[in-house]
Design a binder for these strands. Structure first.
Length: 1145
RNA sequence: AGUCCUUUAGCUCAGCUGGUUAGAGCGCUACACUGAUAAUGUAGAGGUCCGCAGUUCGAGUCUGCGAAGGACUACCA
């Protein structure tokens, strides 16, 4: 092993990244970090499964950085932190990818391609980018076990899901219902509410909307509406989906809403009509400017259409009135075309009369059922009842319908023109931008038939399928639900015990979502997913839910006995053998499970419900399924060793996704939270604050960024630039800045240390120098360092890595590099290997060592190299990697707040004096005799006195003089202390402040002497004491003065002969050092020095001969007059020109 | 339409429980330093703290009403 601290020619974090990775691999560092904590308490972490059928993006680096930081920190704290990777493998994205690749549609499955082949294709497709993901994981230093990941399509995984589903089934939390649901014709499946809650699903779309006229039928019920002057009497109702108008079977009004009858004209046909609509909506449809016009003066085409208000009714008076079917294509089977009342009707938009199509709206369906109104139902050729739109999103074609039904209910002439039309062009693969939409065509037809009152484009927010990006339909479907509403209260209670970062996501976004919880729609009518393990008899009187392969085997055997199945397809499977091989003998996917027929209690055949389950169930069940619970690891889950999680983290977009399903299943199955602490991180935006998207091409390639900078700066930038939950505006320049500002500075500090430590052979072999024997500045940085350890620990404990990173960064660049090292430089070079020098080395070493551990969760690569480089020489740690080390304990006895405060003062004073020097153009190399500081109390003087030497050497001044006299030399300034005065005097503050500010010099002096002062405000005399004001000495007339806050400093700028000479000596040293360096002398090379004679410097050289010699390591120094360009180097000091000659001794 | 978040210097962000001169880094300009040197330091310019109203002696900070951007929710005709 080398004897010297390694120093590098260039500082290349990308290279370091690779080198450290190789070390980790060779040394199995990750495994070691677990093994070394084997018997320690565990910190449970759940990894949310990404889907490997898409490339990872820069935002994944963000999320994983946060996870990794916390897990690494907890490891440092001694916890065993197991991290099992996972893959989300089922579901729509995969299927759609396969369909695109094979150029098939859902309809082709089972025809052009077998389900078996199709699933095989899915299985291959889903792991498409596994390599890239693993590569990214590896390169960014995200420690997670990718060797043995959980995979949701795995039979063992599915078996746990079945077990859990059976638990829910037994608890009566699983039911089947026929409801109107979001349905994606493009994807061919219903969607759950949390799928609609994926980001970007709701989009603004411009649709053609239509206000249709429904002609009222005059009968007993409606007669009260009529009087002789009325023309055609119609209801008007608005819809944003005109294609649902043929399915209209009712109109809804608000029972308490006021409606009016208005005589006017149809704007398109000019025909007179009498309209009924909500009173509040009148002005939206009838221009108030036309109110004064007479009906008689109206001509067709007039811009302003006159109208006349006739009567007013309540909504409930209108209930039961009948109207003519708007589009009599299909006759409904049952009561229809009646006005009903609905509490959901508002007058916010539309006409206050709502068009009801029970087959295409959830509300519609509900109120229609209550009022016993039929929906518009067709019967297909298989004899099933259907809504007017088929599953591909078009009006049913006649050939797909039942012949008898057509004869009985359909007006073939009218309907045939529309049959087969897609209700949205998005579903029609042959449609283009020119293709007229069904909405438009229907609206135009209604216009021509005098049935449309207003047709216009309208922008509204409409949900889209999260994968196909096409609009969804609300569509009647038969689905299995989980009764999450049953446990709503408990979920809310448990949620209150979760530590959310940020809090508002938990309380607001998630909490509010729970308040409005609806049942979880579990069904998906697809092929690639976890099959629902429920078998039902034909009449559905018998249901059997299977909870394990063992159980399924037993049931199959019964079925074989009963003769329903010829043989058991899973007969190779050995019950109780949990080996991988055994589970690979079977496949629990479709179509295999579909072929299984079971036996009911009364010997009837049971067939599997064809549905798959929502993939979010897969991921929400991962805490249990990854452990193959309860078949294996039962104890670990139930004892709390592997459940619930102490910590999870994902994007805030998972609030209603993974976070919800985890929480729901935890609550329902174990009456427990699934996670105790959670960070939900925000989005990663581009530098301008726009969302990154493929379309805009503004995405950042994570591989490129990691390759170029190494992952440390990327991770550090992400962690420190903004809080995880705020959106991050990712600016690659920021990464570069982080590299330079933080890592560059840290490396510089290390290499400074290494440079001198190597010269002196420092190996931390000596015992620690006693604190009392260390100089002020060492004690100061140690105090700050220990404060830092506390702060970093608190921040990590609070799941706030941003705070931790910022604190470390500030310490390194401000305290350590800019102040400690800069001021201590001289202690390292030259001179004896004294106690002071050892103290300097030990102190700096300790800082670097501690920082390497503190920063390691965020920047795992460079920190490890720094740690190893340091430790390789000193062997202070047995651990070969920083990631195996223990988090440092803060030593509070080293924290000295007074010391920190006075160092602060030293910095202020120095900076003020340097400012003054600049003002009068006196360079720092020119020594000055003294500064003067007015002192208000003894404590301040003692504080400054303690850092006296630091100040003096920093500003190159010989002495500090304290001025305490009150004789009037000092000009004082007095300021009111609002904090103490405010509460005492309240409203009188303004006048008091004015009075105090107005005090004369002598009054201030008097005040200071007496300790109190009487001022009069509003004729009232008030006594103010010293604590109510702040007095500072602001100026010393005749001196060069600066002040900042309470500190005032004066600088004596008189230069006597000796100072002048010393200044010259310093200038000479500077030139000589520069020259030494120019000619590449080693730091330790001794020299012979010769300086050209010059009247202005001769005396200085002679008087400061020793000083100069020591500084530049000259063995001898002489003045000569035979130096010239030929044999020496010309130098200039202001306007003095002379020569120096340097030779190696 | 509702809920939540954000809004402070050209840019990225601090600013604790209200206290009177609002900070840092980057960038820009100028200067200094020069054995940490492909570093470093110091200073300057640059702010109606999104707007309005209120509470208060005092508001970047608290309250209300708005605005802009973002996320999320909704059965919305």
């Amino acid at each position: 092993m080398s004897e010297k601290f390694p120093v590098y020619k260039s500082f290349d974090l990308s290279k370091i990244n690779q080198d450290v990775l190789e070390k980790w691999e060779a040394e199995n560092t990750f495994e070691e970090s677990l093994k070394s904590r084997e018997n320690n308490p565990s910190f449970v972490f759940f990894e949310g499964p990404p889907s490997a059928n898409g490339m990872p993006g820069i935002h994944h680096v963000m999320g994983r950085t946060i996870k990794d930081i916390i897990c690494r920190y907890k490891t440092l704290q001694g916890y065993k932190v197991e991290r099992k990777a996972g893959w989300d493998t089922h579901g729509l994205p995969v299927e759609l990818g396969v369909e695109k690749k094979l150029e098939i549609t859902k309809e082709d499955i089972g025809k052009k391609i077998s389900v078996d082949e199709y699933n095989a294709a899915c299985r291959a497709e889903v792991m498409k980018y596994t390599k890239e993901w693993t590569d990214l994981t590896h390169k960014m230093g995200y420690w997670v076990n990718t060797e043995d990941p959980y995979i949701t399509y795995d039979n063992k995984y599915i078996e746990t899901l079945w077990y859990l589903l059976k638990q829910l089934f037994n608890k009566d939390l699983l039911y089947k219902g026929y409801t109107i649901q979001p349905y994606s014709p493009a994807a061919g499946t219903g969607l759950s509410t949390h799928e609609l809650n994926q980001p970007g699903c709701y989009k603004d779309v411009k649709d053609t909307t239509c206000v249709a006229q429904f002609s009222i039928i005059k009968d007993e019920k409606s007669s009260f509406l009529y009087n002789e002057e009325d023309s055609d009497l119609v209801f008007i109702a608005w819809t944003t989906t005109p294609w649902t108008l043929p399915s209209n079977t009712a109109l809804a009004v608000g029972p308490g809403i006021s409606y009016v009858k208005v005589r006017s004209f149809n704007p398109y046909t000019g025909k007179p009509a009498t309209y009924i609509l909500a009173k509040e909506r009148l002005s939206a449809y009838f221009n108030p400017k036309a109110a004064e016009l007479s009906l008689a003066d109206y001509n067709k085409g007039d811009k302003l259409i006159p109208f006349e208000l006739v009567e007013e009714f309540k909504g409930k008076d209108l209930a039961g009135i009948k109207y003519e079917q708007l589009l009599p294509w299909v006759k409904p089977d049952g009561k229809a075309f009646e006005v009903i009342t609905g509490d959901f009707v508002t007058t916010e938009d539309g006409t206050g009369i709502v068009h009801i199509a029970p087959t295409f709206g959830a509300d519609d369906n509900r109120v229609a059922k209550m009022a016993d109104i039929a929906g518009l139902i067709l019967v297909d050729k298989d004899g099933n009842t259907q809504p007017m739109v088929d599953k591909t999103g078009r009006f049913f074609r006649l050939e797909d319908l039942d012949k008898e039904f057509i004869n009985k209910f359909i007006d073939e002439e009218k309907y045939s023109e529309w049959a087969g039309r897609y209700v949205k062009n998005a579903y029609d693969s042959e449609a283009n931008d020119e293709t007229p939409t069904l909405d438009v065509d229907i609206s135009v037809m209604l216009k021509l038939e005098n049935k449309a009152f207003k047709v216009e484009k309208h922008v509204h927010n409409y949900p889209h399928c999260w994968r196909t990006d096409k609009p969804i339909l609300y569509y009647p479907l038969d689905s299995w639900f989980i009764k999450t509403t049953n446990v709503k209260g408990r979920m809310m209670e448990l949620n209150n015990t979760i530590n959310w970062k940020p809090k508002s996501t938990g309380e607001g976004r998630f909490g509010k979502w729970l308040e409005n919880l609806v049942d979880w729609n579990l069904s998906r009518s697809r092929y690639w997913g976890t099959p629902l393990p429920i078998w039902a008899s034909e009449d559905r009187s018998q249901l059997k839910c299977i909870g394990s392969v063992e159980e399924l085997m037993a049931e199959i055997n019964k079925s074989v006995e009963a003769g329903f199945m010829t043989e058991n397809p899973y007969k190779e499977f050995i019950v109780g053998d949990f080996s991988k091989e055994n589970y690979e003998k079977i496949d629990l996917h479709r179509p295999y499970v579909d072929n299984i027929v079971l036996v009911g209690e009364n010997g009837e055949k049971l067939h599997r419900e064809l549905d798959l389950i929502d993939v979010w169930f897969d991921s929400g069940a991962m805490p249990y399924a990854q452990a193959h619970y309860p078949f294996e690891n039962r104890e670990d889950i139930e004892s709390g060793k592997k459940f619930p999680a102490d910590f999870i983290a994902e994007g805030v977009d998972q609030t209603r996704g993974w976070f919800f399903t985890l929480h729901a299943l935890g609550t329902m199955l174990f009456d427990s939270v699934a996670f105790k602490n959670i960070i939900s991180n925000g989005l990663v935006l581009d530098a301008k604050g726009n969302k990154m998207s493929k379309r805009l091409g503004n995405g950042i390639d994570p591989f490129g960024a990691l390759e170029k900078f190494g992952s440390d700066p990327v991770r550090w930038y992400m962690a420190t630039n903004s809080q995880p939950w705020d959106n991050l505006k990712f600016d690659i320049n920021g990464v570069e800045e982080t590299r330079r500002k933080f890592f560059g500075t840290l490396y510089n500090t290390y290499s400074f240390f290494a440079l001198y430590a190597n010269i002196d052979g420092f190996k931390y072999a000596e015992k620690d120098i006693e604190l009392n024997d260390r100089p002020e500045i060492d004690r100061w940085i140690l105090s700050i360092l220990n404060s830092l350890v506390l702060e970093v620990k608190d921040s990590f404990e609070a799941f706030e890595p941003t705070r931790a990173g910022r604190a470390i960064q500030n310490f390194v660049s401000e305290n350590l590099s800019n102040w400690y090292v800069r001021l201590s430089r001289k202690r390292y070079w030259g001179g004896e290997y004294s106690t002071d020098k050892i103290s300097a080395y030990q102190t700096l070493y300790k800082c670097l060592e501690t920082v390497s551990i503190l920063m390691s969760p965020i920047a795992p690569f460079y920190s490890d190299m720094l740690f190893r480089d340091l430790n390789s020489i000193t062997n202070r740690f047995d651990d070969i990697s920083v990631h195996l080390a223990k988090f440092p304990e803060a030593d509070s006895s080293l924290i000295d707040k007074e010391l920190e405060e006075r160092m602060d003062m030293a910095q202020n004073i120095s900076s003020m004096v340097l400012g003054l020097r600049r003002k009068v153009k006196l360079r720092v190399r020119q020594p000055l005799s003294k500064i003067m500081i007015p002192i208000l109390d003894d404590r301040t003087e003692a504080q400054i006195e303690a850092v006296r030497n630091i100040i003096l050497s920093e500003i190159n001044v010989k002495d500090i003089e304290y001025i305490t006299d009150t004789s009037g030399i000092l000009v004082k300034r007095i300021k009111p202390n609002f904090k103490t005065l405010g509460p005492k005097y309240g409203k009188q503050m303004k006048q008091i402040a004015a009075a105090i500010n107005g005090l004369e010099q002598n009054a201030i002096v008097e005040f200071e002497k007496d300790g109190k002062y009487e001022i009069s405000v509003d004729g009232e005399s008030l006594s103010i004491d010293l604590s109510d004001v702040e007095i500072i000495s602001e100026d010393i007339p005749g001196w060069l003065v600066a002040n900042e806050g309470r500190l005032t400093v004066a600088l004596d700028i008189n230069i006597n002969k000796e100072l002048k000479e010393e200044g010259i000596a310093r200038e000479l040293i500077n030139r000589i050092q520069n020259t030494r360096k120019e000619i590449d002398f080693e730091l330790t090379d001794k020299i012979h020095l010769c300086i050209g004679k010059h009247d202005e410097i001769n005396e200085a050289v002679n008087n400061f001969k020793d000083y100069i010699s020591t500084q530049v390591l000259a063995q001898d120094l002489s003045l000569a007059d035979d130096l010239n360009e030929e044999n020496a180097k010309q130098i200039e000091i202001d306007d003095i020109v002379t020569f120096i000659k340097i030779e190696k001794a």
